[in-house]
Protein backbone atom coordinates (compact mmCIF):
# COMPACT_ATOMS: atom_id res chain seq x y z
CA UNK A 1 0.00 0.00 0.00
CA UNK A 2 2.81 2.37 0.97
CA UNK A 3 4.70 1.36 -2.18
CA UNK A 4 1.64 2.17 -4.32
CA UNK A 5 1.22 5.51 -2.58
CA UNK A 6 4.88 6.35 -3.22
CA UNK A 7 4.52 5.36 -6.87
CA UNK A 8 1.41 7.54 -7.18
CA UNK A 9 3.25 10.44 -5.58
CA UNK A 10 6.18 10.02 -7.98
CA UNK A 11 3.78 9.93 -10.95
CA UNK A 12 2.17 13.16 -9.79
CA UNK A 13 5.55 14.84 -9.50
CA UNK A 14 6.54 13.64 -12.97
CA UNK A 15 3.32 15.09 -14.40
CA UNK A 16 3.67 18.42 -12.62
CA UNK A 17 7.17 18.89 -14.05
CA UNK A 18 5.79 19.53 -17.53
CA UNK A 19 4.10 22.75 -16.43
CA UNK A 20 5.69 26.16 -16.32
CA UNK A 21 6.94 27.39 -12.94
CA UNK A 22 3.89 29.42 -11.90
CA UNK A 23 1.35 26.77 -12.90
CA UNK A 24 3.38 23.99 -11.32
CA UNK A 25 3.47 25.75 -7.97
CA UNK A 26 -0.29 26.32 -7.95
CA UNK A 27 -1.20 22.82 -9.22
CA UNK A 28 1.04 21.12 -6.65
CA UNK A 29 -0.80 22.92 -3.86
CA UNK A 30 -4.31 22.13 -5.09
CA UNK A 31 -6.37 20.36 -2.44
CA UNK A 32 -7.36 17.51 -4.77
CA UNK A 33 -6.82 13.78 -4.89
CA UNK A 34 -4.58 13.44 -7.92
CA UNK A 35 -6.03 9.99 -8.64
CA UNK A 36 -9.36 11.67 -9.47
CA UNK A 37 -7.95 14.28 -11.86
CA UNK A 38 -8.93 13.40 -15.41
CA UNK A 39 -7.92 16.35 -17.54
CA UNK A 40 -6.03 19.61 -17.33
CA UNK A 41 -6.78 22.10 -20.10
CA UNK A 42 -4.63 25.01 -21.13
CA UNK A 43 -5.91 27.54 -23.65
CA UNK A 44 -4.19 30.76 -24.54
CA UNK A 45 -5.69 33.80 -22.76
CA UNK A 46 -8.32 31.58 -21.14
CA UNK A 47 -8.72 30.15 -17.62
CA UNK A 48 -6.79 27.05 -16.59
CA UNK A 49 -9.43 24.32 -16.31
CA UNK A 50 -9.31 20.97 -14.61
CA UNK A 51 -11.71 18.04 -14.86
CA UNK A 52 -11.87 16.53 -11.42
CA UNK A 53 -14.27 13.78 -10.38
CA UNK A 54 -16.11 14.20 -13.69
CA UNK A 55 -16.72 17.90 -13.14
CA UNK A 56 -14.99 20.90 -14.66
CA UNK A 57 -13.41 23.52 -12.39
CA UNK A 58 -11.27 26.57 -12.93
CA UNK A 59 -7.98 26.79 -11.04
CA UNK A 60 -7.92 30.02 -9.05
CA UNK A 61 -5.03 32.51 -8.84
CA UNK A 62 -4.80 32.17 -5.08
CA UNK A 63 -5.05 28.36 -5.25
CA UNK A 64 -8.04 26.07 -5.01
CA UNK A 65 -10.81 25.31 -7.46
CA UNK A 66 -13.82 27.39 -8.33
CA UNK A 67 -16.10 28.65 -11.05
CA UNK A 68 -14.67 30.13 -14.23
CA UNK A 69 -15.54 33.74 -13.40
CA UNK A 70 -14.12 33.78 -9.87
CA UNK A 71 -10.49 34.85 -10.33
CA UNK A 72 -9.19 31.93 -12.38
CA UNK A 73 -5.59 31.78 -13.64
CA UNK A 74 -5.31 33.05 -17.19
CA UNK A 75 -2.89 31.13 -19.40
CA UNK A 76 -0.32 33.21 -21.24
CA UNK A 77 1.44 32.50 -24.54
CA UNK A 78 4.74 32.19 -22.69
CA UNK A 79 3.31 29.52 -20.39
CA UNK A 80 2.05 27.47 -23.32
CA UNK A 81 5.48 27.77 -24.98
CA UNK A 82 7.31 26.76 -21.82
CA UNK A 83 4.94 23.85 -21.14
CA UNK A 84 5.35 22.61 -24.71
CA UNK A 85 9.13 22.73 -24.39
CA UNK A 86 9.01 20.74 -21.18
CA UNK A 87 6.52 18.26 -22.63
CA UNK A 88 8.80 17.60 -25.59
CA UNK A 89 12.02 17.66 -23.56
CA UNK A 90 13.14 20.63 -25.71
CA UNK A 91 13.04 18.21 -28.67
CA UNK A 92 9.90 18.81 -30.71
CA UNK A 93 11.67 17.20 -33.70
CA UNK A 94 11.39 13.83 -31.94
CA UNK A 95 7.59 14.09 -31.93
CA UNK A 96 6.95 14.95 -35.58
CA UNK A 97 4.71 11.95 -36.19
CA UNK A 98 2.78 12.46 -32.96
CA UNK A 99 2.26 16.16 -33.66
CA UNK A 100 0.85 15.26 -37.07
CA UNK A 101 -1.72 13.14 -35.26
CA UNK A 102 -2.42 15.90 -32.79
CA UNK A 103 -0.99 14.58 -29.54
CA UNK A 104 2.17 13.79 -27.61
CA UNK A 105 2.37 11.02 -25.03
CA UNK A 106 4.59 11.94 -22.12
CA UNK A 107 6.35 10.00 -19.39
CA UNK A 108 3.73 8.30 -17.28
CA UNK A 109 1.51 7.51 -20.27
CA UNK A 110 -0.42 10.80 -20.13
CA UNK A 111 -1.69 11.97 -23.51
CA UNK A 112 -1.33 15.65 -24.32
CA UNK A 113 -3.65 16.73 -27.10
CA UNK A 114 -2.38 19.73 -29.02
CA UNK A 115 -4.10 22.19 -31.30
CA UNK A 116 -2.82 25.15 -33.28
CA UNK A 117 -2.23 26.11 -36.86
CA UNK A 118 -1.56 23.07 -39.04
CA UNK A 119 1.06 23.13 -41.76
CA UNK A 120 0.07 21.13 -44.82
CA UNK A 121 2.13 19.91 -47.76
CA UNK A 122 1.29 20.12 -51.47
CA UNK A 123 -1.09 17.15 -51.13
CA UNK A 124 -2.89 18.88 -48.23
CA UNK A 125 -1.62 16.25 -45.82
CA UNK A 126 -0.73 17.55 -42.39
CA UNK A 127 3.01 18.01 -42.14
CA UNK A 128 3.21 19.64 -38.75
CA UNK A 129 1.79 22.28 -36.48
CA UNK A 130 2.78 25.77 -35.44
CA UNK A 131 1.37 28.42 -33.08
CA UNK A 132 0.32 25.62 -30.73
CA UNK A 133 -1.99 27.44 -28.32
CA UNK A 134 -4.23 24.76 -26.88
CA UNK A 135 -3.18 21.80 -24.75
CA UNK A 136 -5.34 19.10 -23.24
CA UNK A 137 -3.49 16.90 -20.77
CA UNK A 138 -5.42 13.66 -20.26
CA UNK A 139 -4.13 12.16 -17.05
CA UNK A 140 -3.60 8.43 -17.16
CA UNK A 141 -4.20 6.34 -14.06
CA UNK A 142 -3.17 2.81 -13.34
CA UNK A 143 -6.04 1.21 -11.43
CA UNK A 144 -5.01 -2.25 -10.36
CA UNK A 145 -7.99 -4.48 -9.83
CA UNK A 146 -10.41 -2.55 -12.02
CA UNK A 147 -10.76 -5.65 -14.21
CA UNK A 148 -11.50 -8.02 -11.31
CA UNK A 149 -15.21 -8.11 -12.07
CA UNK A 150 -14.54 -8.64 -15.78
CA UNK A 151 -11.96 -11.42 -15.63
CA UNK A 152 -14.32 -14.35 -14.93
CA UNK A 153 -16.24 -13.48 -18.11
CA UNK A 154 -13.08 -13.57 -20.22
CA UNK A 155 -12.40 -17.24 -19.52
CA UNK A 156 -14.10 -20.32 -20.90
CA UNK A 157 -12.90 -23.92 -21.19
CA UNK A 158 -9.57 -22.83 -19.73
CA UNK A 159 -9.00 -20.43 -22.59
CA UNK A 160 -9.14 -16.67 -22.89
CA UNK A 161 -11.94 -15.35 -25.04
CA UNK A 162 -11.33 -13.03 -27.99
CA UNK A 163 -12.54 -9.82 -26.39
CA UNK A 164 -13.52 -6.37 -27.61
CA UNK A 165 -13.77 -3.55 -25.08
CA UNK A 166 -16.14 -0.89 -26.33
CA UNK A 167 -16.44 2.57 -24.84
CA UNK A 168 -16.80 6.24 -25.69
CA UNK A 169 -13.77 8.48 -25.02
CA UNK A 170 -12.75 9.05 -21.38
CA UNK A 171 -14.56 6.00 -20.03
CA UNK A 172 -11.49 4.07 -18.97
CA UNK A 173 -11.03 1.51 -21.71
CA UNK A 174 -7.25 1.86 -21.78
CA UNK A 175 -7.11 1.60 -17.99
CA UNK A 176 -9.30 -1.49 -18.16
CA UNK A 177 -7.18 -3.01 -20.94
CA UNK A 178 -4.06 -2.40 -18.88
CA UNK A 179 -5.44 -4.30 -15.93
CA UNK A 180 -6.75 -7.13 -18.09
CA UNK A 181 -3.27 -7.54 -19.57
CA UNK A 182 -1.69 -7.50 -16.13
CA UNK A 183 -4.04 -10.10 -14.73
CA UNK A 184 -3.72 -12.39 -17.76
CA UNK A 185 0.06 -12.07 -17.64
CA UNK A 186 0.41 -12.75 -13.92
CA UNK A 187 -2.33 -15.36 -13.75
CA UNK A 188 -4.05 -16.06 -10.46
CA UNK A 189 -2.19 -18.77 -8.59
CA UNK A 190 -4.48 -18.64 -5.53
CA UNK A 191 -8.19 -18.94 -4.97
CA UNK A 192 -10.96 -21.04 -6.41
CA UNK A 193 -10.28 -19.98 -10.00
CA UNK A 194 -6.59 -20.84 -10.32
CA UNK A 195 -5.20 -19.65 -13.65
CA UNK A 196 -1.75 -19.92 -15.15
CA UNK A 197 -0.14 -16.74 -16.37
CA UNK A 198 -0.10 -16.24 -20.13
CA UNK A 199 2.46 -14.70 -22.46
CA UNK A 200 0.94 -11.43 -23.57
CA UNK A 201 2.16 -9.21 -26.39
CA UNK A 202 1.09 -5.57 -26.32
CA UNK A 203 1.26 -3.22 -29.29
CA UNK A 204 1.45 0.13 -27.53
CA UNK A 205 1.24 2.51 -30.48
CA UNK A 206 0.77 5.65 -28.40
CA UNK A 207 2.84 4.56 -25.40
CA UNK A 208 -0.26 4.82 -23.19
CA UNK A 209 -0.71 1.23 -22.06
CA UNK A 210 2.77 0.48 -20.74
CA UNK A 211 4.01 4.10 -20.81
CA UNK A 212 7.55 2.95 -21.53
CA UNK A 213 10.30 5.42 -20.76
CA UNK A 214 13.73 4.56 -22.14
CA UNK A 215 12.50 1.00 -22.56
CA UNK A 216 11.10 0.60 -19.05
CA UNK A 217 7.32 0.29 -18.62
CA UNK A 218 6.09 2.81 -16.06
CA UNK A 219 2.85 0.84 -15.61
CA UNK A 220 2.66 -2.71 -14.34
CA UNK A 221 1.59 -4.94 -17.23
CA UNK A 222 2.55 -8.22 -15.62
CA UNK A 223 5.59 -10.45 -15.56
CA UNK A 224 4.92 -12.24 -18.86
CA UNK A 225 4.20 -9.23 -21.03
CA UNK A 226 6.24 -8.03 -24.00
CA UNK A 227 5.65 -4.51 -25.25
CA UNK A 228 6.19 -3.05 -28.70
CA UNK A 229 6.35 0.64 -27.91
CA UNK A 230 5.38 3.37 -30.40
CA UNK A 231 4.76 0.77 -33.09
CA UNK A 232 1.94 0.98 -35.67
CA UNK A 233 -0.67 -1.53 -34.60
CA UNK A 234 -0.98 -3.53 -37.83
CA UNK A 235 2.77 -4.08 -38.19
CA UNK A 236 3.16 -4.61 -34.46
CA UNK A 237 0.65 -7.43 -34.29
CA UNK A 238 2.40 -9.29 -37.12
CA UNK A 239 5.83 -8.74 -35.55
CA UNK A 240 4.70 -10.05 -32.18
CA UNK A 241 3.20 -13.19 -33.66
CA UNK A 242 6.32 -13.91 -35.68
CA UNK A 243 8.91 -13.23 -33.00
CA UNK A 244 7.51 -13.25 -29.45
CA UNK A 245 5.07 -16.20 -29.54
CA UNK A 246 2.34 -14.52 -27.55
CA UNK A 247 -0.66 -16.44 -26.34
CA UNK A 248 -2.59 -13.18 -26.14
CA UNK A 249 -2.17 -9.99 -28.18
CA UNK A 250 -3.53 -6.72 -26.81
CA UNK A 251 -4.11 -3.53 -28.81
CA UNK A 252 -5.84 -0.25 -28.08
CA UNK A 253 -8.24 1.69 -30.33
CA UNK A 254 -8.45 -0.39 -33.47
CA UNK A 255 -10.05 1.23 -36.48
CA UNK A 256 -8.34 0.75 -39.84
CA UNK A 257 -8.51 -1.83 -42.60
CA UNK A 258 -4.84 -2.74 -42.10
CA UNK A 259 -5.44 -3.34 -38.41
CA UNK A 260 -8.40 -5.54 -39.21
CA UNK A 261 -6.25 -7.68 -41.54
CA UNK A 262 -3.60 -7.97 -38.84
CA UNK A 263 -6.28 -9.04 -36.33
CA UNK A 264 -7.35 -11.83 -38.67
CA UNK A 265 -3.72 -12.88 -38.89
CA UNK A 266 -3.41 -12.99 -35.09
CA UNK A 267 -6.58 -15.04 -34.70
CA UNK A 268 -5.60 -17.44 -37.48
CA UNK A 269 -2.26 -18.02 -35.80
CA UNK A 270 -3.99 -19.29 -32.69
CA UNK A 271 -3.37 -16.33 -30.41
CA UNK A 272 -6.20 -14.63 -28.59
CA UNK A 273 -6.92 -10.98 -29.16
CA UNK A 274 -7.97 -8.36 -26.63
CA UNK A 275 -8.75 -5.06 -28.33
CA UNK A 276 -10.52 -1.81 -27.61
CA UNK A 277 -12.59 0.38 -29.88
CA UNK A 278 -14.51 3.65 -29.67
CA UNK A 279 -18.22 3.06 -29.47
CA UNK A 280 -21.27 3.30 -27.28
CA UNK A 281 -23.16 0.05 -27.83
CA UNK A 282 -23.41 -3.13 -29.88
CA UNK A 283 -25.63 -1.31 -32.35
CA UNK A 284 -22.93 1.32 -32.77
CA UNK A 285 -20.27 -1.36 -33.37
CA UNK A 286 -22.40 -3.09 -35.99
CA UNK A 287 -22.48 0.12 -38.00
CA UNK A 288 -18.68 0.44 -38.14
CA UNK A 289 -17.58 -0.80 -41.56
CA UNK A 290 -14.33 -2.25 -40.22
CA UNK A 291 -15.94 -4.28 -37.45
CA UNK A 292 -19.31 -5.22 -38.86
CA UNK A 293 -17.76 -8.18 -40.73
CA UNK A 294 -16.02 -9.48 -37.61
CA UNK A 295 -19.20 -9.20 -35.57
CA UNK A 296 -21.15 -11.05 -38.26
CA UNK A 297 -18.50 -13.80 -38.39
CA UNK A 298 -18.58 -14.10 -34.56
CA UNK A 299 -14.81 -13.73 -34.35
CA UNK A 300 -15.04 -11.88 -31.04
CA UNK A 301 -16.33 -14.02 -28.22
CA UNK A 302 -16.88 -11.26 -25.69
CA UNK A 303 -18.07 -7.66 -26.10
CA UNK A 304 -17.64 -5.48 -23.05
CA UNK A 305 -19.38 -2.09 -23.01
CA UNK A 306 -17.89 0.43 -20.59
CA UNK A 307 -19.45 3.59 -19.21
CA UNK A 308 -18.69 6.44 -16.84
CA UNK A 309 -21.81 5.95 -14.73
CA UNK A 310 -21.59 5.60 -11.79
CA UNK A 311 -17.79 5.85 -12.15
CA UNK A 312 -15.32 5.84 -15.04
CA UNK A 313 -14.58 2.30 -16.15
CA UNK A 314 -17.91 0.87 -15.02
CA UNK A 315 -18.96 -2.24 -16.92
CA UNK A 316 -22.38 -1.53 -18.37
CA UNK A 317 -22.93 -4.76 -20.32
CA UNK A 318 -21.13 -7.90 -21.46
CA UNK A 319 -22.24 -9.89 -24.51
CA UNK A 320 -21.08 -13.20 -25.95
CA UNK A 321 -20.34 -13.96 -29.62
CA UNK A 322 -24.03 -14.44 -30.35
CA UNK A 323 -24.75 -11.03 -28.74
CA UNK A 324 -26.50 -12.67 -25.82
CA UNK A 325 -26.37 -10.61 -22.70
CA UNK A 326 -24.15 -12.15 -20.06
CA UNK A 327 -24.05 -9.24 -17.63
CA UNK A 328 -25.86 -5.96 -17.22
CA UNK A 329 -25.19 -3.23 -14.70
CA UNK A 330 -28.87 -2.30 -14.42
Amino acid sequence: MAKEARKAGKKKEQLMKIFSGRLRKILMQLPVDFAEVQEIRMRIHAPLLIVYQNREYAVLEQGGLGAVDTGAIQITREEIRETLELISNHSLYAYEEEIRQGFITIQGGHRVGIAGKTVVDERFMIKGMKYISFLNIRVSHEVKGCADKLMPYLWGKNQVKQTLLISPPCCGKTTMLRDVVRQLSNGSPDGAERREGLTVGVVDERSEIGACYMGEPQNDLGIRTDILDCCPKAQGMMMLIRTMSPQVVAVDEIGSREELDAMYYVMNCGAKLIATVHGTSMEDIRTKPILTQMVAQRLFERYVILDQIPTIGSIRQIFDEGEHLLYSQV
Binding site: N89, H90, Y93, A94
Partner: peptide, 8 residues
Protein backbone atom coordinates in the same frame (compact mmCIF):
# COMPACT_ATOMS: atom_id res chain seq x y z
CA UNK B 1 18.89 7.01 -36.12
CA UNK B 2 16.71 6.99 -33.02
CA UNK B 3 15.04 10.42 -32.99
CA UNK B 4 16.28 10.56 -29.41
CA UNK B 5 15.16 13.52 -27.34
CA UNK B 6 18.03 15.75 -26.25
CA UNK B 7 18.03 14.87 -22.55
CA UNK B 8 18.16 11.17 -23.33
Amino acid sequence: CHKTVLEE
